[in-house]
Design a protein around this nucleic acid. Structure first.
Lengths: 252, 252
DNA sequence: CGTGATGTTGAGCAGCATCAATTTCGGTGG
DNA sequence: CCACCGAAATTGATGCTGCTCAACATCACG
């Protein structure tokens, strides 16, 4: 299998970062936090600082005082919960339009996760107090924040469920892949169809393992097993699940 | 060991439910959602319906359309994420002052967890639209909601971490107990002391197991092992952790 | 005193983590 | 252009942990 990480570095799907005004942003999708009225966008732009980060840089450090909120303009960021002794747990991968660091809304709170860029990123950074004022001024903004927090919460619940529900490694990996696929295709039609799903998989086996709660070697073994059984295919970073239903049915 | 569940039924610590006005509520603590100015409380009271539920009743059903927000006035409610095949995962136990069903803030969202009362409960039920209007009218209410959602999120992350970080059952159970203890003592002083912690444990071994991601029998075995090693004690529903640090150090 | 839910303890087995060796592949530098 | 390097992927062998099954004890309640 090819090396995903290095393909990423030369990937041109995400173009070079051009500083731009939020009001003219073309990357904004319907599910983006920054899908807001023009007046709110102008305010948001005025209180934000743009960061341009290389790949593999630490954006948020678990345990540090939460004083900034971040909005991803471009690039991917992985969110990790860790503890001194244990291995890291990859909670989710955030993309353009996602908001990070919402724990900062609570006075005196600490960041509960670490955020690390997967590829070069353009990210807006907003001081806590300015963001709270922004929310209080624009009801749309406060609704968008609630939406973002709900998404965070749901994805954390999915993570927990994944790790607990199935006792077999195969089941954990299968539901990790399914959760991922569905996260990318929330806008699509009916949920429980059996059509093949394609999505971008920018993670290494190690990272996938820390997302499913299993070891790197087991990820390799299971992916080859799934491929042999015709359940999925992978070329470059594109992963295709051919029989979502059959993956769903794996629990032992 | 004594039977926790049945003790609970005859437990008088939580008095019989008396309908009362939110403004005069004596149960309201500093961390309660309903720790709000009098004007907001009057509005909250006017839009809410009070439910009095017996123990072991279903309050929220996973997968159903989220159209109500709930505020717990008295009693305990367990939050469960489940899936058709797997065993249930107990995410957390909510108590007085907690808010449930915040997924209802998103239009068209579904409840992602099931909520079941552990003992007789008094719970306020608020229709989605009224709650959103309430938030928009009172900035304090919208801040309190953000606080509640952050607590939900943090507790979901803790659940996920618990299940993933340690590969041994002992580690999972230990961190479950520690998380629980700390949830009850957030207001206390420094975090990393080695003083004994006492708290109420209203769960059966089965429920503890579904919280830690281990089997009922393993819970029994480990609790007796911990007790023999002097790490904890349990009389009735009171559990005392004697050496938090030593519990913390368990990872294999 | 029967019943059902819960707690306790023991024995055996399978699945997965772990360790170890090898391959593949991009990038780098001569 | 080739040799080297390091990161990631792959494959095999082995040991141990905790799940499962099973039998029994205990308790609350009707």
């Amino acid at each position: 299998m090819n090396c995903l990480r290095f393909n990423l570095k030369t990937n041109t799907r995400r173009p070079a970062i051009l500083p731009h005004h939020c009001a003219n942003c073309s990357r904004r999708g319907p599910r983006s936090f920054c899908n807001l009225p023009a007046t709110a966008l102008r305010d948001l732009h005025s209180i934000a600082t743009t960061l341009n980060l290389d790949a593999h840089k630490v954006l948020i450090n678990e345990g540090f005082s939460a004083d900034h909120v971040f909005v991803i303009c471009s690039g991917c960021v992985k969110l990790i919960a860790s503890s001194p002794e244990g291995r890291p747990l990859l909670l989710r991968v955030a993309g353009p339009g996602d908001v990070l660091g919402l724990a900062a809304l609570l006075p005196g709170a600490l960041y509960r996760v670490t955020a690390i860029t997967l590829d070069p990123c353009s990210i807006k950074s907003i001081p806590r107090d300015d963001f709270i004022r922004f929310m209080d001024n624009f009801i749309d903004a406060s609704h968008a924040t609630a939406t973002a927090m709900t998404r965070d919460y749901n994805s954390a619940v999915l993570s927990a469920r994944r790790l607990a529900l199935s006792n077999s490694a195969a089941g954990k990996l299968a539901s990790t892949l399914l959760d991922w696929a569905r996260m990318d295709h929330l806008h699509d039609g009916p949920e429980h169809n059996n059509l093949p799903i394609s999505f971008t998989m920018p993670l290494t086996h190690e990272e996938l393992g820390s997302m499913a709660g299993i070891s790197r070697e087991t990820v390799t073994r299971l992916l080859t097993k799934f491929r042999r059984e015709g359940l999925l295919d992978q070329t470059e970073q594109q992963m295709t699940l051919h029989h979502p239903n059959r993956l769903e049915a794996i629990y032992s």
